[in-house]
Design a protein around this nucleic acid. Structure first.
Lengths: 349, 349
DNA sequence: GACAAACCGGAGAGCGCTCTCCACTTCGTG
DNA sequence: CACGAAGTGGAGAGCGCTCTCCGGTTTGTC
């Protein structure tokens, strides 16, 4: 019969399905959303009608009434103008760190039928864009990874009453949920290992002092070394990039030629440090033991890097879980999840 | 006056703005969307009303009527079960290749106020999810990066009449727009360089034979070498990962100890090849010259890698541009954009 | 000064969906 | 056998926005 066809061109609507199934729109909606009891034979008829019409619910119409989108923003926030050269987006996404976080988020969200929207916030303008984006109901909440400590975005989100979860504790305390690593404990793991190996002259290459994680790793390491009877640990500051690890290692060896153990605040810099050590003719781990942090680039190093593993995928998944909880229950209390790192022993220490 | 306040709790709507500005909904809509002429003083009044109410248009309501979402899907498609071990999302996003593509896409899309939705398609189920996602109007089109040659997703998209643009030419010709690199020309650049340096015994480490780009790089290189009077070029197959480059290099040197130049089909494998060469005590470039491809990991190599640069960010931006054109005009003809690579000379050759 | 042409702003009809009533069955129970 | 409780499905009111008509007001032109 001709009335079985959609009445207008374009995608079939609920109305079309209802007509084909011989029921009302409301019933079809119930079947689709699994609400209340609908007699089995009618459910069956509706499913058949959906099948034959090729119906797919319209997301915009649905979220107009439910006030939910089934999307979350994954925003990378930082200072775009910090260093010249490449644009922010190139630097950010090229970092394996981001990739692993994205992987963890997607791994958790995908089975739940929700997808992350990639956003970058590197200026006042783009930060406002993120807030607007959420306010217009384009996403239900935000997962925020800040590259800079003083990032104002988290506060903007809190002030706007938008659900959000942060990667890492914010520099300035604000009422927002976050997931972080026990950096100090991780650094202590490295210190223990170095001492256990018999290293006597230990140094460290830290991350930028203005990022809390870098501070924690540094002070955690120094403290643990102090506990092992080494009150003074030479330290140089890097920027988490390989080149700074290389330069830092050179400086360290020049100033303290007898160093026999180094804790480097992330794997990327450790990679550079390894290069420097090789150039200087020092064997790793025989002459100098090296421990990295993150377990991000460890296997591609020569020798394979002993490192403090940060389970980024798990942490990212945890962020997603927390965010969905906040979205489901706006009154949910702010919480923090601190994950414990583990030491992965390979060959460099 | 009390009527200036939104009549209900929740976000202000067009209606609220209209009331405050003393005009109709339609006029506010016109001002916001910049359609037709609205008297300057009224525009002014509307803007003020928007300001005071803190109005933000509701995306769902808007796209319900415009049938546009202002979002595109960025889908990474491939075979998830190919190799055991880590889940697909971890492998994919950890690859700097993906990061650069994402960066290019975001760089182009962001100034236009549109954001990519990250999706993964690694099974029949998830491929259907992508199609459904687009069909329900959650995104206006798809940017597809396939990791596998026989990926069925592009065809599904074409069959569903959904706007989509591919990264790289599909293995099987289908009517879909794509952006690709002139791989053969790039390989020829490498051949020319090696020959110009005086290399006499040249070999190559190729990518997997089932990916078209790898084939093109291999045959393009062989052909160019033939043109230089070298009809036979020893070749081993890798999988684009560092370890396979290292293994390949060892095999090559064992079978042909007099090799003095190698073209490696991507930088990641070249990185591994460099490691192998160092282990074998060969100096680069004095004993063996090495040229990579992509310019992705080149600067972190020792020595810095001479490589064929693939401008991924530009290509990704071009994909985005093409997709938006297809979205704006559904009848737009299918096109392909082939980008020319350049040789970046560093120290390895 | 009259008439058309341009301009401006309002009314109102949906876009496709969810969800709250309500009416109608069908049971179980005293 | 009557009566309320539970279960089942329909009607209809919006969600917030865009956009087509249309009527009213200016402006230009002979």
């Amino acid at each position: 019969m001709s009335t079985d066809l959609p009445h207008t061109s374009g995608a079939p609507t609920l109305e079309d399905v209802a007509r084909v199934a011989g029921v009302s729109r409301a019933t079809v909606s119930r079947v689709i959303n699994g609400i209340r009891n609908v007699a089995p034979d009618i459910q069956e008829a509706v499913h058949r009608a959906i099948e034959t019409t090729g119906y797919v619910p319209n997301r915009a119409a649905r979220s107009l009434v439910t006030r939910r989108t089934g999307a979350v923003a994954l925003v990378v926030s930082g200072a775009g103008d910090a260093k010249g050269g490449e644009p922010f987006e190139s630097r950010v996404f090229a970092d394996p760190f981001f990739g692993r976080v994205a992987g963890g988020v997607v791994g958790y969200l995908r089975p739940r039928g929700i997808h992350p929207v990639l956003m970058l916030a590197d200026s006042a303008q783009t930060r406002d864009d993120v807030v607007s984006y959420l306010r217009q109901g384009s996403a239900d909440g935000a997962l925020v990874v800040s590259t800079h400590a003083e990032d104002p975005l988290p506060k903007l989100l809190v002030d706007a009453g938008l659900p959000a979860v942060l990667w890492a504790r914010p520099a300035r305390p604000i009422p927002i949920s976050y997931v972080d690593l026990a950096h100090r404990a991780g650094a202590a793991l490295a210190a223990d290992r170095l001492v256990a190996r018999g290293c006597r002259r230990v140094a460290t290459i830290s991350g930028p002092f203005d990022v809390p994680a870098a501070q924690d790793r540094l002070s955690g390491f120094q403290e643990a070394m102090a506990g092992h009877g080494h009150p003074y640990v030479p330290a140089v500051e890097g920027d988490f990039m390989p080149a700074s690890g290389e330069a830092g290692m050179h400086r360290l060896m020049k100033e303290h030629p007898d160093i026999d153990g180094v804790f480097v605040a992330n794997d990327l810099m450790a990679q550079g440090a390894l290069l420097a050590l090789r150039d200087l003719g020092r064997r790793v781990p025989e002459d100098v033991a090296v421990i990295g942090f993150d377990d991000s680039a460890a296997v591609t190093c020569r020798p394979p890097l002993t490192t403090v593993r940060q389970p980024m995928e798990d942490m990212a998944a945890e962020m997603a879980r927390l965010l969905l909880a906040h979205v489901a229950d706006p009154d949910l209390q702010v919480t923090s999840v601190i994950v414990r790192p583990t030491l992965v022993v390979r060959q460099s220490a």
